[in-house]
Simulated assay, not measured.
Amino acid sequence: MPHAYSQAKKAHESGNNEGIRLQKILAQAGFGSRRKCEEMILDGRVEVDGELVTELGSRVDPKRQEVRVDGSRIRLNNRHVTLALNKPKRVLSTMDDPKGRYTLRDIVGDKYERIFHMGRLDYDSEGLILMTNDGELSQHVMHPRYEVAKTYVVTLDGHLSGNVCRRLVRTGVQLDDGWIKLDQCSIIDANRETTIVKVVLHSGKNRIVRRIFGAIGFPVRRLVRTQIGPIKLGDLKPGSYRVLSDAEVRSLSKAVGL
């Protein structure tokens, strides 16, 4: 059976105008003007179904075929949307709650069909949660194989020394379910009563940051997640959300192997 793109190419050469011009798809995906997208094709940066495309005028069926630029897959389904949401404290990381407590649905409403959160923050934690109705992207973001780095700003009870911070990166700490290490730990501010630290780790285990610092005698007063992979919380206000740009979705997709 001929390769899917080979079939499309033959259809184009025979005068069949089915499909969408490749440079138009690239432009719609946010890669710039059609002229710039044509240059990308001519430079050999674009693949369709695993085959390099260097000819202009080629047409693609976005419902059936896969397009990659510089090895990164382009999301072609316009119905898919991915959101960055700033979860306040005392909001459940779920879409519905039988007890009537405030949930993510109370923030995003019913505007987006079948949208769901990728990962969670506990009830008293704040910050970045990603949501999408792209099932494939969601599976990759949450799969242990593709655990992306997550960044937190954490306020602790007590004065944490730099040596302890470095030890959490170098050797880690033993919890009930095994040893765990931080990827990065840096002190932002400290006094006799509290310490503010920035931590980065890949683990997606439940309440992992609180458990790590609780295990060494530094209870968490406040926890804010500020970044997931390449996506940053930025100046997004608590209780609000924004739609990720095409470039952000591409960078997130690349980070999780899509």
Score class of each variant (00 low, 15 high):
76 L>R: 05
71 G>H: 04
88 P>I: 00
173 V>F: 08
70 D>N: 14
170 R>N: 11
145 R>P: 01
118 M>L: 14
67 V>C: 00
82 T>P: 01
135 G>N: 04
130 L>D: 06
154 V>Q: 13
181 K>G: 00
193 E>H: 14
187 I>K: 07
111 K>F: 06
184 Q>P: 06
120 R>K: 03
185 C>I: 04
132 T>H: 06
186 S>V: 12
148 V>H: 02
124 D>W: 06
173 V>Y: 07
129 I>H: 08
184 Q>E: 14
192 R>D: 15
135 G>S: 06
193 E>M: 04
183 D>N: 13
194 T>A: 10
109 G>W: 09
183 D>K: 13
106 D>E: 13
169 V>S: 07
171 T>G: 02
188 I>C: 06
178 G>E: 11
174 Q>S: 12
132 T>C: 03
130 L>M: 02
83 L>P: 08
134 D>V: 02
194 T>H: 14
129 I>D: 05
152 Y>A: 03
69 V>L: 09
188 I>R: 12
152 Y>W: 07
162 G>T: 07
188 I>N: 01
102 Y>E: 12
115 I>L: 04
111 K>M: 10
168 L>H: 03
98 P>V: 10
143 H>K: 06
159 H>Q: 14
154 V>A: 13
167 R>M: 10
123 Y>F: 15
84 A>K: 01
146 Y>I: 10
193 E>Y: 10
128 L>R: 04
181 K>V: 09
162 G>W: 05
107 I>K: 00
193 E>T: 12
156 L>P: 03
89 K>H: 13
188 I>A: 09
124 D>I: 00
199 V>Q: 03
192 R>I: 02
144 P>I: 09
96 D>G: 00
180 I>N: 02
